[in-house]
Design a protein around this nucleic acid. Structure first.
Lengths: 159, 159
DNA sequence: TGTCATGCAGCATTTAATTCTGTTTCTGAG
DNA sequence: CTCAGAAACAGAATTAAATGCTGCATGACA
């Protein structure tokens, strides 16, 4: 259920590899090896090991959302009608299926879920919000439209 | 200042390339070509073009935050004392420099900024929150600790 | 209908990934 | 203190991929 805890101590070189790959996931192994002061073969061994042990979960291209017509981001706070597992469960099932929902966190505090959505325009925002609030069990919602991205998804601080 | 609008129409193959690379950023060009039913050379041409035109901004390894000792995520709503550009500017400068701040959006609605932070534990949360609220101009703050990640950073819907 | 531009496949060359081997270094037992 | 074993490394050889080049096919346009 939960993610396993760190099973071994990563040394300086492992952390350097993670740091480089987080910033440049498509660097060649030869150049990665240079960055971390190793020869290519042990460097590749370490990367494979970090992958198989789950420190690296995968690699992604970062796409420009504005150029792909999805410039509008909104954060939506959702409160459910009751805090029973049955209601939570239904909400989870529904929310996960909406493609424009980028992320969804259950939170402790004044509401139940914080949902981040990414859409092309206000018309689509309205459409997606409709889908969300129509989910059985949803009581109230508040939207905060993003005006400006001050800091965008910086990775983990690994060094 | 703003990101340029889409300058050309991406065809089905371009979108398929983006979709594959978003899910597997380190796939070899040979295999990518197979996925999108092209031979390697035109496939590589398209990738390079998508990169140079800015549709692809870069590539990242996705790291397992729990295994790297940063399992705790919190969303912090920040309100500033005044809505002048001078105050905003100071806040931006400070917030960007805090490594544990993963993202920060200026929003329209009941508060000014929504800040996402990632920390090891509550002690570090307290430390980081201290840095945030000590930033000149900050008036009020509310934290929502994440209990469960329902949907994690799904990419753009490109197809 | 001919010409140009675009995009493609296939081949050749360069570069990188992968595998294998031998050496060094560290650790722990005797 | 010394030796056996394991782990990690560098370097060479092999396999595979990236890159660059050439020519063909297709579609736009005069």
């Amino acid at each position: 259920m939960t993610t396993p805890i760190r099973t071994r101590v990563l040394d300086r070189i492992d952390l350097a590899i993670l740091d480089v790959l987080q910033r440049n996931g498509r660097i060649s192994n030869v150049n990665l090896a240079k960055e971390v002061n190793l020869s290519p073969s042990p460097c590749l061994d370490r990367v494979k090991k970090l992958e198989s042990e789950g420190y690296i979960e995968g690699y992604s291209a970062r796409l420009n959302s504005a150029k792909l017509g999805q410039a509008l981001v909104a954060h939506v706070e959702i409160t459910l009608k009751s805090s029973t597992e049955a209601v939570f469960s239904v909400f989870r099932e529904h929310i996960v299926k909406i493609p424009q929902v980028v992320s969804c966190d259950m939170v402790a505090g004044g509401f139940d879920y914080l949902v981040k959505i990414r859409v092309a325009d206000m018309a689509q925002y309205r459409e997606v919000l409709g889908k969300i609030v129509e989910t059985p069990g949803v009581s109230t919602n508040h939207t905060y439209m993003v005006i400006e991205h001050i800091k965008i998804d910086s990775g983990l601080t690994v060094l």
